[in-house]
């Protein structure tokens, strides 16, 4: 299983390396998006001083973690990127995968590997390091463990959202932009402290889609900040639960979607 995955990914990377100029251009592009988005916030901090009480260093901590996790997710789950996957279905490539005697989920994951996301990951790590410089953390073993769990959980969570988005393309590609609300929108949201958002959004992203536990609560714990919402003390450690929950849900929906696809075609 792992052996064949390694081979499928290897094929993707070798393919991309044949267009070296384009690859580096896109690598620079993805790095630039993250950098400029961060810059647009960092550069105005001089005018505003805080984001409702949070310093630039504290916001950068959230921002860096979210961006680097999303970058990793986007690299490993790019086969499930709804806009890519929708095209694959329309062009009949998904049918080709179904004709091979191999687990279909593994094949979709192996059907694309956007190495250029390294640009986003590197900038994300850079912002995270800058955050630690602006705002030193009292590291404990638990905090280090939690930080790495946060990355894994976010990858699982947004990977799950990608899978859900991809599955929706079995029904429609037209309205697939709505999925961006949850993927890019969700990532954008958790890059900022959740207490700045209106209540209805915060409730939605706490109780329906538990994104608040992916970044904000772990950050409160790691940065030794008080919890403005009086959640149970376990809240900072719920990130893996949220991630796993989303991924499990997504895989169930994915299986349902494949059954639907096989009964309607395209």
């Amino acid at each position: 299983m792992l052996e064949i995955y390694r081979r499928l990914i290897g094929v993707q990377i070798r393919g991309q390396m044949q267009y070296r100029f384009s690859f580096f251009m896109e690598l620079a592009g993805t790095a630039l998006i993250t950098l400029l988005e961060y810059a647009s916030l960092a550069l105005v901090f001089a005018r505003f001083e805080t984001l409702k009480g949070w310093s630039l260093g504290q916001v950068a901590f959230l921002f860096g973690l979210a961006e680097l996790s999303f970058g990793i997710m986007d690299m490993f789950f790019s086969g499930f990127d709804p806009s890519f996957f929708g095209l694959q279905v329309r062009r009949g490539f998904f049918d080709q995968l179904l004709l091979r005697p191999l687990n279909i989920t593994l094949q979709v994951i192996g059907s694309e590997f956007t190495l250029r996301r390294i640009g986003k990951i590197v900038v994300g790590i850079g912002i995270f390091i800058a955050a630690l410089n602006m705002n030193p953390v009292d590291w404990t073993p638990l905090k280090i463990l939690l930080t790495s769990l946060v990355v894994v959980s976010q990858v699982a969570f947004f990977g799950g959202l990608f899978i859900i988005g991809a599955t929706i393309t079995f029904w429609t590609v037209e309205s697939i932009e709505v999925v961006n609300i949850f993927t890019y929108g969700g990532s954008y949201m958790i890059s900022h402290p959740m207490h700045i958002f209106p209540n209805f959004l915060r409730y939605f992203f706490t109780f329906i889609i538990p994104a608040i536990f992916l970044n904000y609560y772990p950050a409160l714990y790691i940065l030794d900040l008080p919890d403005p919402f009086d959640m149970p003390a376990i809240a900072p450690f719920l990130a893996p639960v949220a991630g796993l929950w989303m991924l499990t849900l997504a895989l169930a929906f994915w299986r349902f979607g494949i059954r639907h696809y096989q009964s309607t075609g395209t």
Binding site: F48, L51, M189, P193, I196, P198
Partner: peptide, 10 residues
């Protein structure tokens, strides 16, 4: 709405 919220916070 997200962007407006960020301005309110700033």
């Amino acid at each position: 709405i997200l962007r407006a919220a960020i301005f309110v916070a700033l």
